Simulated scan of single mutants.
Amino acid sequence: MQQRLALLEETLHREVPLTRTMGVRVEEHDGRELLFLADFEPNINIHGTAFGGSLYSICAVVCWGMLHLKFEDEGVPAHSVLGDARITYSLPVRGEIKARCRLPDDGSYETFIESLRAGKRSRLELTAEILVGEKVAVRFVGSYSAAV
């Protein structure tokens, strides 16, 4: 699994070079949840907290990374793009950035994959969270479109 996560990190740094500058690291994946870490220093704003644009970007790529891994798991040669998103900033982030994306439990992921397997363009809403300790500091909800 570690090799697979390292390959995802390499892909991110190659395809989205900003992720390298931001210090994004692929940390854990259990099939239903993906965890990224990112360095604080390159993502700091004038207030000494993590920059909102950086947090948005990290959320967008952790969701993209989840789909990338799931397409591999499912043997579906799909590509995804973010079509729409909304974000809520509830708490300041003042240290290492911890972002997670979990697959939805409502059956929408399974429907999404079935549509892709049938050769249809499909859309899935994914949620990412930035955590400060055990508290959710940022919640991102993105609508990802995919096609084979």
Score class of each variant (00 low, 15 high):
residue 85 A to K: 01
residue 81 V to F: 12
residue 99 A to R: 04
residue 101 C to A: 14
residue 125 E to Y: 01
residue 101 C to T: 13
residue 17 P to G: 02
residue 55 L to P: 09
residue 6 A to D: 09
residue 82 L to V: 12
residue 23 G to Y: 08
residue 39 D to C: 00
residue 123 R to P: 00
residue 10 E to R: 15
residue 27 E to H: 15
residue 4 R to E: 14
residue 17 P to E: 01
residue 88 T to Q: 10
residue 85 A to D: 02
residue 117 R to S: 06
residue 5 L to M: 13
residue 133 G to Y: 14
residue 108 S to Y: 05
residue 58 I to F: 10
residue 66 M to N: 02
residue 13 H to P: 08
residue 62 V to T: 13
residue 44 I to A: 01
residue 141 V to W: 02
residue 4 R to L: 15
residue 133 G to L: 13
residue 38 A to E: 06
residue 128 A to N: 00
residue 64 W to H: 04
residue 123 R to E: 10
residue 130 I to V: 14
residue 5 L to D: 07
residue 108 S to L: 04
residue 83 G to T: 10
residue 24 V to S: 02
residue 69 L to T: 09
residue 42 P to C: 04
residue 97 I to G: 00
residue 21 T to W: 11
residue 31 G to H: 07
residue 140 F to Q: 00
residue 34 L to K: 08
residue 52 G to V: 07
residue 50 A to D: 04
residue 35 L to M: 08
residue 126 L to T: 01
residue 132 V to Q: 08
residue 140 F to R: 00
residue 74 E to T: 09
residue 132 V to M: 05
residue 114 E to D: 07
residue 122 S to W: 07
residue 10 E to I: 11
residue 60 A to S: 13
residue 47 H to S: 01
residue 128 A to F: 04
residue 23 G to P: 07
residue 105 D to I: 01
residue 102 R to F: 05
residue 29 H to D: 14
residue 130 I to R: 03
residue 53 G to C: 08
residue 121 R to C: 02
residue 100 R to N: 11
residue 115 S to G: 12
residue 70 K to T: 12
residue 111 T to D: 05
residue 18 L to G: 03
residue 104 P to C: 11
residue 37 L to W: 11
residue 69 L to M: 07
residue 122 S to E: 03
residue 86 R to Q: 14
residue 78 A to S: 12
residue 127 T to L: 08
residue 18 L to K: 01
residue 39 D to V: 01
residue 76 V to Q: 03
residue 16 V to Q: 01
residue 71 F to A: 04
residue 71 F to S: 06
residue 66 M to L: 15
residue 76 V to T: 07
residue 105 D to A: 13
residue 92 P to T: 08
residue 25 R to F: 11
residue 58 I to N: 01
residue 2 Q to R: 08
residue 10 E to C: 11
residue 46 I to K: 05
residue 126 L to Q: 03
residue 39 D to E: 12
residue 90 S to T: 08
residue 31 G to Y: 10
residue 137 A to M: 10
residue 92 P to M: 07
residue 103 L to G: 11
residue 115 S to Q: 14
residue 78 A to L: 10
residue 29 H to C: 13
residue 114 E to M: 04
residue 30 D to C: 11
residue 76 V to N: 06
residue 63 C to S: 10
residue 97 I to W: 05
residue 62 V to W: 06
residue 139 R to K: 14
residue 25 R to H: 12
residue 59 C to D: 03
residue 63 C to K: 04
residue 70 K to Q: 12
residue 60 A to N: 07
residue 60 A to T: 11
residue 33 E to I: 00
residue 117 R to P: 00
residue 112 F to N: 07
residue 5 L to P: 11
residue 31 G to I: 13
residue 72 E to Y: 00
residue 126 L to N: 04
residue 147 A to H: 15
residue 137 A to G: 09
residue 11 T to I: 14
residue 40 F to H: 01
residue 76 V to S: 03
